[in-house]
Structures are given as structure tokens and as C-alpha cells.
Nucleic acid binder design. Structure first.
Lengths: 213, 213
DNA sequence: GTGTGTGAACGACTTCACAGCC
DNA sequence: GGCTGTGAAGTCGTTCACACAC
């Protein structure tokens, strides 16, 4: 497949790869030919050793005494992260958050294509919504039969989330980005990332409360 | 202070505390008097031992043979997380994401009060925006002098982020929730949480690409 | 018997440090 | 001299397992 790795890659490593890619693209755009692990580390707020270890999981890209070839490495990282595919995404929940997401530039820039928007509210179904038309959430399973969907983004209230997830998984979607502040229960082969703003805020609240005075 | 702890609490622990609180509130609402570490673990997708260890950092709340008193524990967790304060929040960036955030229920429910909205775009400055009026981002430092601001939420493009952060920190704000997909550089005593949707999506892309076939 | 609290064992990620190559 | 690649050492968070309390 894409790489010869046998060990499992840590989640934290993947997040950093994504970060490296972001900054390498910037460097590439500004014509930088090479970048050292030290330079990358500074940009990404990590350590040179960490950068080297992360990259070495996937091969030896660097030249000793020189650093990493910027363009070559961006290409390789995109490959590793699977950004060659044009992933097809549906957004479930046509509210404010869903709307903000659909517009989010980062989506398209990285090859994530919104191919459908769903809601359960009859007032919203049928409405135009960006390029798409809001469809009944009940039709999602049927739609997935005729059109490939790789990722579902959940932007709905917590109370509905688990129910929708069950149907999404049943329909064959294997990756979920969850914005509902609830713990989703899914089979182990399904990839789930949860973005929980309440949790982040409470993390800040804790930090402010228990800071070194 | 709030607790007698001397060791540093791991970030992952704080996130779980937040999760426990969420489900304990639910249980409390439905009249449950006690909950075992086992029950909580199932709800929060963790292990009973983890729950007990997390809670034991802050004292012995449970009764052996019985479990934890639900209501008492919610009160205690709110205290630990610092949710007694009415934290005052400003939102920087009056775009779609900022707008979705300002409306987000979780905010108010947990005592986070939006006391200001800022943008640098002259077309947006002065517009009504929910309860507030959008103000010039240049005025934020001055405003912070007359009104306490605990947390700044950044919902602006990456290119502007570091610049705004520098001014925010200068102005005395000590906690930042960052939605720009960039690494913020701040002094170590400032608390920063970054929510990076591109990163999460790329994590899913990686998982789909490198899944066990 | 049931379920907590916790030291000890374990495992996973990070940092160190240095050999090797440019 | 500069910088990568990587085993070894270290650190930190999680899991185990059992004494103890109800």
C-alpha cells in the first residue's frame, strides 16, 4: 500500500504530520527548497527529534547535513495522509455549525468535497443550501447506495447523535467527524473524531482556575 | 484553594472530568442517586479503573460497595473545573464560525458569557450581532481595561491569528480558544486550546487510507 | 458480595545522544 | 561542520490487582 509500515502510528503522530504538511506547503509556496527538522519544529511547536522520528516512520526523506526537500516531502505527506483521494463528505445537520462547516475553505483546499446536506427538520428539507439542496436525513442510507460517501460530518444535537450514527454506520460510512458534545458508540473499525467545544472551554476554565498563582 | 492537589493534572484527565460531568448531570436529572465507576466508564467509553483514578486525584467521593453520589459529584466536578465563575468571553471574528459559536447553547449553559464580538472588517464593525454590536478589533485592548475578559475565542483566518493573539495576550487575556488552523505562539502561562478541523479531517483521511483491509 | 482507592506493573510516546552521511 | 536516523533511556499516562470499607 502507501507505506511499508508495520507498527501502528500514534494518533498524535498523525496530527503532527498534518501540521508539518501545512507549514511545508507554506515554505514550498515561498520557494524554500529544504527545511531542517529544527526549522519545522519551531514552526510546529515541537522538537527536532520529534520531527525526525515522526518522518522516519515512513522512510528516509532527509539528507544529512542539509535537511528535508520541501516539495518532495509535501507530496509524500499528502500521499501518507491519503489526501490524493477526493474524499466525499456529507454534512448532517443544516444549522449554523453545519453551514459554517460547508463554507469552510480548508474543506475544499484539501480535497474534501461536500456531496450532500441532510436534516430532519421538514422546514429545512428542500431548501437550497450553498450548491446543494437539503435532503431528508431518512434518505441518507438510500443515497449512500447510489453515491459513494466516505465521511459524515455530524452537526446535530446530542440527543439525535447516537441514533443518526447507528444509521450512518449501517449505511456503510466508515468515518465520522462529530461535533455533538457526546460520546459516540461505534464498532471498532469505524473512525471517529469528536470536536467538543464545551470540553475545550472547560479545559480553559480549569486552567484559569488552577493556574500557578 | 479548590483542591489540595500537588501533582499536575494531565490534560486527558481534565477532558474526561468534563465528560463525567456531562453524563452525571444527565443521571442527576433523571433522578439517579448513585453511579458506579463501571457505569460511568461505559457511558464515557473508558475503563472503571480510569474513572476511579481520575476522581481520586481530587479526593474520595465514592462509597465502597455503593458507587459515587451523583448530585454531590456534579457539584464537586463543577467546582474543580472552575464552572462556578461566570467566565466572560469575547469572540474575535464575526464570520460564519464566530456566529455559530456565539449561538452555541453549550456556551451559556456552562456559564460562559459572551461580552463582546470583534472584527477588523469595516463593513462588519457597528453591525448588530445577536445581543452585541460588532466592534473594531483595534479597540479590544482598550476595552479589556474597563471590562474583565477571561477568554478570547479566535475565529479568524490563519494569517491574522498570530498578530491578534499577540495583542490579546498583551491586553492581559490569559486563555484562548483558537479555531484558526495554525500553531499559536504564546508565553507559557497562557492557556491555549486549538480546534483544528483540517487536522481532524486529515486524521480521518489517514484512517481510511491505512485501515486494516 | 459489591465497588472504591491506590501502589505497582505495564505500555506508549517523547527525549536523549550519538553514529553516520553529506 | 551540519543535520539526519535511530536505538536506548526516560517520562508520563493507563491498566492491574488487591486490600479495605460498606
Amino acid at each position: 500500500m502507501t507505506h511499508p509500515t508495520t507498527k501502528r502510528i500514534a494518533d498524535s503522530t498523525v496530527r503532527r504530520l498534518s501540521m508539518y504538511l501545512r507549514y511545508l506547503e507554506e515554505l514550498d509556496g515561498s520557494g524554500q527548497a529544504t527545511a531542517s527538522s529544527d526549522a519545522l519544529a519551531h514552526l510546529c511547536l515541537t522538537t527536532p527529534a520529534q520531527v525526525r522520528k515522526d518522518l522516519s516512520f515512513f522512510g528516509s526523506f532527509g539528507k544529512r547535513g542539509l535537511g528535508y526537500p520541501v516539495h518532495e516531502l509535501t507530496v509524500r505527506l499528502r500521499e501518507i495522509l491519503g489526501l490524493g483521494h477526493a474524499w466525499q463528505v456529507v454534512i448532517v445537520g443544516a444549522g449554523k455549525i453545519g453551514s459554517a462547516l460547508a463554507e469552510y475553505r480548508g474543506f475544499r483546499q484539501r480535497g474534501f468535497q461536500v456531496v450532500g446536506v441532510y436534516d430532519k427538520n421538514p422546514d429545512k428539507i428542500g431548501r437550497a443550501w450553498g450548491d446543494a439542496t437539503v435532503r431528508d436525513i431518512a434518505q441518507l442510507p438510500a443515497d449512500v447506495q447510489s453515491q459513494r460517501v466516505d465521511i459524515a460530518v455530524l452537526a446535530i444535537p446530542s440527543d439525535d447523535a447516537q441514533d443518526v450514527v447507528d444509521r450512518i454506520v449501517e449505511a456503510g460510512i466508515r468515518a465520522i467527524l462529530n461535533f455533538a458534545p457526546t460520546q459516540l458508540h461505534v464498532p471498532s473499525q469505524i473512525a471517529v473524531k469528536t470536536v467538543n467545544m464545551a470540553m475545550e472551554l472547560e479545559g480553559l476554565s480549569f486552567a484559569l482556575t488552577n493556574r500557578a498563582d
